[in-house]
Structure formats: structure tokens, C-alpha cells
Design a protein around this nucleic acid. Structure first.
Lengths: 186, 186
DNA sequence: GTCTATATCGCGATAGAC
DNA sequence: GTCTATCGCGATATAGAC
């Protein structure tokens, strides 16, 4: 058996995803996940703090994308358009991970405990974005509002995209921003 | 000891709030809460599905306020201004429950498990609002975006209000909407 | 109301990896 | 040899079944 932590971690992720899809989140025990991954239950908890977290590795990648995207926008750009540009930058990555995202969303949507975790992750992301905007020189007040609103728009666009996957995500994003501009500007 | 369910429930709430404040959420067991409330642990779980929910009774009241407020706005009013008016209607109630809200926010902010629950509650509220807007005749798409954005603005205003409690909440709300209008409209 | 499953975590020992 | 991941065992508390 390979001793490298990475492999064990990857096998645990894979095993968890399969089992959760097969039997539903609630019907699966951490012991079963560990068994399928070929490690002990104790090892599971060394890699992941609880039964849920194993599903949110993709979310960690997302935080990386957001950070990079915002860093790629010149500091002179004001918070609102800066975040707007950052969103355009991460849209292609989001579009690529569409399949995996859908599969995950299906499990999460049906399980209250997972929806809680997902909601918290999103809140953390918004807080992260607000912090990054403040680092760029934005007032805390404005940074908070911009992060909250624009991330909300992106999340909304992703939802409408899932409902109409034929259209590119970027189109949905543009449409959502235009709609909001018309509503909030008046 | 009164056997009426309501009283027991209220004592459980009180006991939980005290114990969580005294020792922190993690250091308190449901058995201790039940003991202080003078009931058995089993009774705790009859009233609340888990260790966290006992803290979110206020949130339930909030959903009631929101529903009533939206119902009080004539159906002819378009989604965005309707929600805007509904927010103005619930601001006084929010302002009254300011103290309790602050005490609760302090516990929640320091405990990841509670922040998860709070984030999920907020997401549920947004979904509820979107549903109500759809019932009023709004397209699902627009309803989702309006609920998300305007509730976000309100949440933002509550945050800035907590940071500057001298100013009335309504002032913070108006300011936040004006700020968003300037940002998103351009 | 009792009983039990199971998620979570602490600790000392062991065994691959470098 | 020194890490560091894993193992094996045990303890506790939440949550749900009967």
C-alpha cells in the first residue's frame, strides 16, 4: 500500500463521491468510505475534518481562481468594475468544470447538511473577495457590498446556466449584470 | 415545574443561550442544556432537531415578518420596488430586536458550525423571498436576482449598522441602496 | 424514555518514504 | 536515521430508532 498521503486522500475523495452518489449522503458511513479507499476510518479524519468536507475540494480550487483573477486586474480599477472583470476571467474555468459541478450540485441539493456547508463556503468566499478588494484600497463598506452583490450575480448566472446549458455561461453573466443594472439603477 | 411545552421550550432556549455564552458552543453538551432547563435530554431533542437549532428561533420570526411585509405590498408593484418597500416595512422590527440580535451574532460569529447554520438560513430566506415574488407574478429569473441582491443589501446594511449603531438602521439601508444604485447602474 | 449507531478525536506504536 | 502517514484502540456526544 502506498504511503503517500496524497494518494490516500485522492482515493478517499473518489470513494466518498461514488458512495454518496450510489446510496445517498446519509446512508454512507465514514467507515465505509475509508474501507473502499483501503485505509482506516481514523485516516479519513486525518485528511478531512468531517464527513462533508471531502466533497468540497473543488471549492478550494475556486478560491484560488478568484484570488488570481482579482490579482490580474490593475489596482487602479475601481472595486465594482474590478470584480466585474475578475468574474469574466474565471468564467472559462467555471465552464470547464461544469460537469463535475453539476454532479456535485445534485448531491448537495438533496442533503440539508451539505447545503449548509455549501452556503457557508459561499459566505466565506464573499468575505475573501471583500478582503481582497480592501487590500486593493477599497473602503470596507463598499468592498463588502460589491463582493456580496457581484458574487450573488455570478451565482445567479450559474443557476440560470444550469437551467439552460445550451447558452455559454458568459452570456448568462452578461445578461444578469444588465438586468441588475436596469433594476438597481432606476 | 410547568409541563407546558411552550414553557419548557422557552427555558431550553434561555438555558442554551446562557450556557453557550458562558462556556462557548463547543464546550456545552445538550445534556447540560436540558439539565439547566429542568428537562431530560430527550425532551430537548423533541423541541429542537439538533444542538444548533435552539439558537435560531429569532430567524423564524424573521421569515414571518418578510412574508407579511411582502404581502402588504400591492401586486401591481414590480419585484424590485416591491422588495424595496417590504424591506422598509421590516426595518422597524429588526431595529427593535437589535440587542438580542447582537448577542446572538456574537456567538454565531465565533463558531463555524453556527455560521454554517446561519448561512443556510439566509439562503433559505432568499429562496423564500424569490418564491413569494414569483407568486406575485415575477419571472423566476428576475425574482431570484432581486431576492438575492436586495436581501444582500439588507444584510450589508445590518452589518454596517452594527458597526455604527448610533445611526438608525433605515439610514444604513437607504445608504446601501443608493450606493448600489450608483455602482450597478453605471 | 431507553438503547444504540456512528461521527469525531486523543494517544502511543509502527512502518513506508527520503 | 528521521520524518510523517497510518494503524489500532478507546472515549464521548450527538442524533435517531425502538
Amino acid at each position: 500500500m502506498p504511503r503517500s498521503g496524497k494518494e490516500a486522500r485522492a482515493r478517499l475523495e473518489q470513494a466518498a463521491l461514488e458512495l454518496y452518489l450510489e446510496h445517498g449522503f446519509d446512508a454512507v458511513t465514514t467507515a465505509e468510505i475509508a474501507a473502499r479507499a483501503g485505509v482506516t476510518e481514523r485516516t479519513y479524519f486525518r485528511h478531512f475534518p468531517d464527513k462533508r468536507e471531502v466533497l468540497f475540494e473543488g471549492e478550494r480550487r475556486l478560491t484560488g481562481w478568484v484570488t488570481e483573477a482579482l490579482a490580474a486586474v490593475p489596482d487602479e480599477v475601481a472595486p465594482w468594475p474590478a470584480m466585474r472583470r475578475a468574474i469574466d476571467l474565471i468564467v472559462p474555468s467555471l465552464e470547464e468544470s461544469g460537469r463535475a459541478g453539476n454532479r456535485l450540485a445534485a448531491i448537495v441539493a438533496t442533503t440539508p447538511a451539505l447545503r449548509e456547508r455549501a452556503a457557508a463556503k459561499e459566505a466565506n468566499l464573499v468575505a475573501l473577495v471583500a478582503g481582497l478588494l480592501v487590500e486593493r484600497g477599497a473602503p470596507a463598506d463598499e468592498a463588502d457590498l460589491v463582493a456580496l452583490t457581484e458574487w450573488g450575480v455570478l451565482a445567479h448566472a450559474i443557476r440560470t446556466w444550469r437551467a439552460a446549458p445550451g447558452t455559454p455561461l458568459q452570456r448568462h453573466v452578461d445578461r444578469a449584470f444588465a438586468l441588475l443594472g436596469g433594476l438597481a439603477g432606476a
